[in-house]
Amino acid sequence: MRHRIITLSALSLLSLAGATGIAEAQPTSAHGPSAMVFTIAQGSGAATDTILRATTLTCAYTAEGTHPDPRAACDSLNATEGELNRLLAAPNPARMCPMLYDPVTVTADGVLNGKRVAWKHTFSNSCAMSATLNGNPVYAF
């Protein structure tokens, strides 16, 4: 009797899974799916900021989107392990920036490695942004 209940339960689960698509084979990878929108805006992160540039990036089997170097940007994003503050480096000490407050905000919104992300960072000016993001391909657009 117990074997029959287990068999019926297993069959019920399989038929439910087939109806909902759960039993479909899903591709696996080292990183979950990522689909992001990145912006660089003039301002301190308010809704009224002026978007200067924006790009999209999808990291799955292939790297694609409107980003000029999607493969390098995906590799850099994956290296953060979900901590987007790791995109920020110590400012290049050889680069001198003016002490002018003209804020620039960078954002990242979307799904990163299967998890929802909404991140932003404000720099004092565009020179400080360039010095801090120096060499990082994610915001090189």
Results as ranks from 00 to 15, higher is better:
Glu81Leu: 15
Glu83His: 04
Thr66Ser: 15
Arg53Gly: 01
His67Lys: 13
Gly82Thr: 13
Asp69Val: 01
Thr80Glu: 03
Glu64Tyr: 02
Gly82Tyr: 11
Asn85Ala: 10
Ala63Tyr: 04
His67Glu: 13
Ala73Gly: 07
Ser76Gly: 11
Leu52Trp: 09
Thr62Arg: 10
Ala90Lys: 00
Cys59Gln: 03
Leu57Ile: 14
Ala72Thr: 10
Ala73Ile: 11
Ala72Ser: 15
Arg71Ala: 15
Cys74Ala: 07
Leu57Val: 09
Ala60Arg: 14
Thr56Gln: 07
Thr62Asn: 11
Ala54Tyr: 13
Ala54Gln: 15
Asn78Tyr: 09
Cys59Asn: 03
Asp69Gln: 00
Thr66Val: 09
Thr80Ile: 01
Tyr61Arg: 09
Arg86Trp: 01
Leu57Asp: 09
His67Arg: 12
Ser76Pro: 13
Thr58His: 00
Arg53Asn: 02
Glu64Pro: 00
Leu57Asn: 09
Leu84Pro: 06
Ala73Asn: 05
His67Trp: 12
Asp75Ser: 13
Leu87Glu: 00
Leu87Asn: 00
Ala54Asn: 14
Ala60Phe: 10
Cys74Asp: 07
Leu84Asn: 02
Gly65Leu: 06
Ala73Leu: 06
Asn78Cys: 02
Ala72His: 12
Pro70Asp: 01
Ile51Tyr: 04
Pro70Ile: 06
Thr66Glu: 09
His67Ser: 12
Leu87Tyr: 02
Leu88Ala: 02
Asn78Thr: 04
Ala79Tyr: 11
Ala73Pro: 10
Ala63Glu: 04
Cys59His: 04
Pro70Cys: 02
Glu81Thr: 13
Asn78Gln: 07
Pro68Ile: 07
Ile51Val: 15
Tyr61Ser: 13
Ala79Arg: 14
Ala54Gly: 14
Asn85Ile: 04
Thr62Glu: 12
Thr55Ser: 07
Tyr61Ile: 11
Thr80Gly: 03
Leu77Ile: 11
Leu52Lys: 08
Ala79Gly: 13
Gly82Pro: 10
Asp69Leu: 05
Thr80Gln: 02
Asp75His: 07
Ile51Thr: 15
Leu77Tyr: 12
Ser76Lys: 14
Thr66Asn: 11
Thr66Arg: 13
Thr62Val: 12
Cys59Tyr: 09
Leu87Gly: 01
His67Ile: 11
Ala54Asp: 14
Pro68Lys: 01
Ile51Glu: 14
Arg71Tyr: 12
Leu87Ser: 01
Thr56Ile: 08
Ala63Gln: 04
Leu87Phe: 00
Arg86Pro: 03
Asn78Val: 05
Asp75Gln: 12
Asn85Gln: 08
Thr80Trp: 03
Arg71Lys: 15
Thr66Asp: 14
Ile51Phe: 08
Asn78Pro: 00
Leu57Thr: 09
Thr58Asn: 02
Gly65Tyr: 05
Leu57Lys: 07
Cys59Met: 04
Cys74Met: 07
Pro68Arg: 03
Leu77Ala: 13
Ala90Leu: 03
Cys59Gly: 03
Gly82Trp: 13
Gly82Ile: 11
Ala73Trp: 09
Pro68Gly: 06
Pro70Arg: 05
Ala54Thr: 10
Ala90Pro: 00
